[in-house]
């Protein structure tokens, strides 16, 4: 994990690619969707077959933002041909990529949460939890705790959101694995405490698959000043 973060800083990166972001949070203990970085069309198809259809393809690079708006995300691809076509389209936009991320498609049950890390100038790393998906910033149903989090802190921040009912049994879906969620929140807090180089983290959405929370998108932002220091040194 240290290698990924420090390697990126040595490269002068401001953020980790989605692939590396997910690797980092997974190593910390947050469950993420299965994904692999394909560097050729055949490799993409092979990964997709291995995961089983449908799959998602995303252009992967540390400088890519607004992936969806740039047509860099292809959802729910159902067969080899669709994967091959999507690979060509993503790589054909003339943008330098690390590769194309092949990711298992998680249907989920529409319950989407957000987990994040931010740094407060007074209190240091803070963990956020709340309602995820496209309405996150409109509804702002989120709670914060300063890291490191005890499991009690994590439980209390989960119970603090207005939409906490979504965590129980909901429209035929089982209750969310609370322990898993608590562990994820504690883990993200610990990342903030252990890695000064990490400025912020967005995990959105964290989809509920059955009862299990799974991160399907993640972004780790690195400290700019640290990156600059490394460069000049």
């Amino acid at each position: 994990m240290k290698n990924i973060v420090q390697g990126a800083i040595a490269n002068g990166q401001k953020a980790l690619s989605e692939y590396d972001s997910k690797r980092v949070i997974a190593m910390a203990g947050v469950p993420v969707s299965r994904n692999a970085l394909a560097r050729s069309r055949d490799e993409a198809v092979a990964f997709a077959r291995d995961f089983g259809y449908p799959v998602v393809l995303k252009g992967c690079s540390d400088i890519l933002t607004h992936k969806t708006e740039m047509g860099m995300v292809k959802l729910k691809l159902k067969n080899d041909d669709e994967v091959a076509a999507a690979y060509d389209e993503i790589t054909g936009k003339g943008i330098t990529l690390d590769g194309v991320l092949v990711q298992e498609w998680i249907e989920g049950d529409k319950r989407e949460f957000v987990v994040g890390l931010t740094r407060d100038p007074q209190f240091g790393p803070c963990v956020m939890f709340g309602l995820g998906g496209i309405f996150t910033e409109a509804l702002k149903d989120v709670s914060f705790r300063v890291a490191p989090l005890s499991t009690l802190d994590a439980e209390e921040m989960i119970d603090e959101i207005r939409t906490k009912k979504l965590l129980g049994e909901f429209r035929g879906s089982p209750a969310v694995d609370r322990d898993g969620l608590v562990k994820a929140l504690v883990a993200i807090g610990n990342l903030g405490v252990e890695y000064d180089e990490i400025a912020e983290i967005d995990i959105n959405p964290l989809i509920i698959d059955g009862s299990r929370p799974v991160a399907v998108d993640a972004l780790v932002i690195l400290r700019r000043e640290t990156a600059a220091d490394e460069k000049s040194a």
């Binding site: 957000v114 994040g116 890390l117 931010t118 740094r119 407060d120 100038p121 007074q122 209190f123 803070c126 956020m128 709340g130 996150t136 910033e137 702002k140 989120v142 709670s143 914060f144 705790r145 300063v146 802190d153 209390e156 921040m157 603090e160 400025a199 912020e200 983290i201 967005d202 959105n204 972004l219 932002i221």
Partner: peptide, 24 residues
């Protein structure tokens, strides 16, 4: 006042953090 890059940062704000610290 902090210019946040992430969505998490944009929603944090110092007041929210203070209240969280106090509750915690």
């Amino acid at each position: 006042s902090k210019a946040a890059q992430s969505h998490t940062g944009a929603m944090a704000g110092s007041h929210k953090t203070y209240e969280s610290v106090l509750k915690q």
